[in-house]
Design a protein around this nucleic acid. Structure first.
Lengths: 94, 94
DNA sequence: TTAACATTTAACCTAAATGTTAAATGAAGT
DNA sequence: ACTTCATTTAACATTTAGGTTAAATGTTAA
């Protein structure tokens, strides 16, 4: 939702790793969890943080819940960063 | 230094606000602090987090310590985000 | 060197984040 | 309906982050 949520979600290495894994396509919660050294439940919470930040979407397929990247919210961060960097090629400055 | 440090530093609204303020030029710690409703000491710690993340630089001038933006580390985040978004204009994919 | 000012550091407290285990949900197959 | 499998949620412990006040540091000027 907000930049705040998005940045907070990205400020955790496990969550970033999850996002990177999802670049290659959707994965089930179980598959995702298998890549980490923490419990299933812990990953599940990370997934819900990412979901609240709208960085991933989930779809149930039978017994499995698949997660996939949603990169649209990243635009907001990009814009904020660009603004911060002072990129002024949208209008003349001075 | 690391993406981790940078993102963690950006994941706090006060710290982001400080960075935005510094877009207009350098400011002393006191001036920065004056814009917020928390104590001086609290802002000082935020400044040190930003400094460790290399997002700001400080220079002492007499009694004052001035802070200024250092946006170069933002590149790293931009790259990471771009990669995550799957921007593939560097090579043809499929 | 003492005083005054700007800022940081230390010690401490509270709240939030992360991890664990165990119980709960939800779908599928028998 | 019962069992099994995939996943989430709850309850709790531990760690980390952010805030406060008070003491420490560093600079300037008397």
């Amino acid at each position: 939702m907000s930049l705040q949520n998005t940045l907070k979600a990205l400020a955790d290495p496990i969550r970033r790793e999850i996002l990177s894994m999802l670049k290659n396509g959707k994965m089930s919660a179980g598959d995702i969890s298998g890549h980490f050294d923490v419990t299933f439940a812990s990953i599940s919470r990370h997934l819900s943080v990412l979901k609240e930040a709208d960085l991933i979407r989930d779809t149930r397929e039978g017994k499995f819940i698949f997660y996939e990247l949603n990169t649209s919210v990243l635009e907001e961060i990009m814009l904020w960063l660009t603004d911060l960097k002072g990129d002024v090629n949208n209008d003349k400055e001075e």
